[in-house]
Amino acid sequence: MDPQWHAYTPYSSALDPCPPRPKAYIVPPNQYVIFQPHGLRQFAPREALKRGTLWPELYSPYEHGDRGGGRR
């Protein structure tokens, strides 16, 4: 799983009707940047166009199933 995902385990009771499932939330990299610094690494132009950003540091992947099992 991408490190942008943060797993956590909320309280789960023995009386809960369904078995507990893993929980996770994503924090995209923009949360850690106040002003974007100059001179960041860059993707190749075609790669940047595909990903939606020129800078790998600001790229946030979001793959089906990253949340933990996806649609199950």
């Binding site: 943060h6 956590y8 924090v27 949360q31």
Partner: peptide, 13 residues
């Protein structure tokens, strides 16, 4: 609270 959720990563690593 936002900072706490951002900081979760370091602890979990």
């Amino acid at each position: 609270a936002v900072e706490m959720l951002k900081g979760y990563q370091e602890e979990k690593k």
